[in-house]
Structures are given as C-alpha cells and as structure tokens.
Design a protein around this nucleic acid. Structure first.
Lengths: 201, 201
DNA sequence: GTCTATATCCAGATAGAC
DNA sequence: GTCTATCTGGATATAGAC
C-alpha cells in the first residue's frame, strides 16, 4: 500500500502567500516603475503591515530576487513551449518574436531582468542560474539550427536592440517591434553570406 | 567707438558654479549609479551645505535635467565633429562607433539619456529639443548618404542594441562593441539588397 | 504569523538669520 | 549666497507582545 506523504499545509500556505506578495509586487512595479517599489505600498496591497513581510522575505532585495527568478522562469517556460519547425529560420523568427513580446509586454520586468538599474541589487546564485539556463538554451537551439556560436552575440544584440528601443522611446507602440522579421531575415542573410565566404578560403 | 557690453561678473560666477555642480553630479553617478545621486552627497562634493544647492537648481530633477542637456550637447558636438568621408558607408561606420563609444564610456549617462529609469523625471521642453536635434541630424546624414528613412529605426535598433548589451552584461568589456563593423556591413548589405528588390518591381 | 511600536537613518525641500 | 535649523515625509528593518 502506498502511503501519501503527509502534506505540510503550513508550508503550502507560506508558499502561497509568498507568491501572492510577488504578484502584488509585479503589479506595483508595472504601475509605478521598478525603482518605485516600497515595502509600505506592497504591504498595503496585500493587506498586511509592512513588518509582516519579513516573515516571508528577508529583505527588499530578496523580493526583487524572487521577481527576477520568476521572470526568468517565465521566459524559459515560453522558450520551451516553442513549436517544432522544419526550418531553423522559422525557429529563429519565432524566438525573436517571443523575446520582443516578453520585453514589451512588461517593461519593468525587462528592466529588472536585463538592465542593471537597482543600486545594490545582485541576483542570488540560485536565481542567476536560471538566467544562465535561458541563455544556454538559446545558444543550443541556434547550434542545432546550424548557426555557429560566433553569431550568438550579434543575434542577442539585434533582438534586444529592437526591444529596448521600443520600451525606452515608445512604450506600447510598434515602431521597432514591427521590424523583427526584417531584422531576422537580414541576420540570416548575413550568416549565409559569411559562411560562404569562409568556405571559399 | 565700440563699447564692450558690461560683463555681468555675478552671472558668470553663478553659471560657473552651476557647471561645477553638474560636473560633481556626473562623478557621483559614474561612481555610485544614476539612481544613487543624493543632494547631500552632491553638496558635500562641492563643499556646500545641501540647501545651498537650491540657489542654483530648483530641485533635484532640475539637476538631472541639466545633466540630460549636457549629455545630449556632448553627443551632438561629437557628431558634428565627424570628418568628411567620400563613402557614405564610412560615415555610417564612424557614426556607429561614435555612438557605441559614447554609451560604453559612461553607462550612467547612457541610462539617463536613453533609458527611462528615474521615476518622475521628464526632461524639460528646452532640454528635450536638443535630444530631438541629435536624432534629426542622424536622420539627415543618412538621407544624404542615400539611405532611405525607412531604414532609420533599424539602424538605431542595431547600434543601440550592441551598446546596451555591452553595458548591461559586461560593462567595460568589448564582447558586443567589437561587432560594430560587422553589424554595419550587415546593415549596408541589407539596404543594398532591399533597394534592388524594390527597383525590380 | 501578525501586530504595534519604534529604531535608525535618509531623503528633498523650506524658513529665516547673517 | 550661504548658512543653521527644521519640516515633513519616507525608507528598511528590528523588538517584543499577542
């Protein structure tokens, strides 16, 4: 007979509250900006007194850390949900759109994950590991698609460039994000041409 | 007989002190981060008591505004110092390097000018006008080089992408900035190809 | 776990003497 | 113009009762 391990209802509840706090924090930073997050506002939003938050997080930075983790997990989840494509070009196009969509739909999240604007905040080692995994996965997919690692930095530069220009200069618009397909094609053409040149040598 | 207009020594001195304060502010944000600037630190650095700063600037945001203005003036100055080139491609390459250099040599300045990370700060109308002039100038130069305006947003996306990846992920390094020439060539090739296609129609 | 109370410190900004 | 003194409000964080 298989015995279910005893559920730890207290731990479950604790975890649920942590999640609730992080959710509320996202709502606040989306509305007020990443740097404007305060424990006062956050506590108010979840119906607590500010010191009670310390039962769930050691510090404000620990909350940023949980947000950083959650954001990267979400991005990784999306990448892993990529459909199967026959053509690597389609895969690249899909990935480009996925990243751009991820950044522009929540600029505050992009600011936390990809820029370093909060004085003193460094993601913890465990958290950072997920961010590394996101990058690793992208690299691997590119390799499987036959695109050499020497093109990876160019690729991230191009796509993040469109994303950041969009959120910095015209949040909510499409002036740069509409260029994803064109940029992907330009990139693929460049890869083809460079590889051919190299082959001639 | 030509009479020199009376110099206003007081106004000159006032202006000199303003400049000195802005210089000190740059040093602080370079060392501590853009968001970490405080009037206390700033006053200490210039040998004043904090309230004395209000003789020169109405508010902290007014100091950011002066910095924003100065930064854009510096960028405009550099663009205007561009040498004459026979080949528009060389001009583009030069401009790409100039922008990348400008951002990576002072990430805090780039953050102030090109990202929107300080809650509540908006450049004043007069100040913003200089920023607009920088963009206009770039657009005009591209047009003179025979590159259509439809390529301008791609161009800014590419170059700023390399810049921002560099300062966000590896400040002080060259992992992305070393790619400027490659990206410029890729861009030019793309423009050539697209124009040819369009000509065929 | 949550609260009240508080510590500690810092911020930007103003009043008014000199 | 610069100072001292102060206002007002905010921040993160801790102590200790319940």
């Amino acid at each position: 007979m298989v015995v279910e391990p005893m559920r730890d209802r207290r731990a479950e509840r604790h975890e649920a509250t942590r999640t609730e706090i992080v959710e509320a924090a996202w709502e606040l930073v989306r509305a007020e900006g990443l740097a404007a997050l305060t424990l006062r506002d956050l506590a108010k939003k979840v119906g607590m007194q500010p010191p009670s938050l310390y039962s769930y997080f050691d510090s404000k930075h620990a909350i940023y850390d949980a947000m950083f983790l959650q954001g990267n997990e979400e991005l990784l989840r999306r990448y892993e949900a990529m459909p199967d494509f026959d053509d690597p070009a389609d895969e690249l196009r899909w990935a480009g759109h996925a990243f751009v969509e991820f950044t522009v739909e929540d600029p505050a999240r992009a600011q936390l994950l990809f820029m370093r604007t909060i004085p003193g905040f460094e993601p913890s080692a465990e958290t950072y590991e997920v961010a590394v995994r996101v990058v690793e996965r992208s690299k691997e997919r590119m390799a499987l698609g036959g695109i050499g690692p020497e093109y990876f930095d160019i690729w991230t530069g191009l796509i993040s460039g469109l994303s950041f220009q969009q959120i910095a200069n015209e949040p909510g618009g499409k002036r740069w994000t509409r260029l994803v397909d064109e940029v992907v094609d330009m990139f693929l053409e460049h890869v083809r041409k460079s590889n051919k040149k190299r082959g001639r040598r």
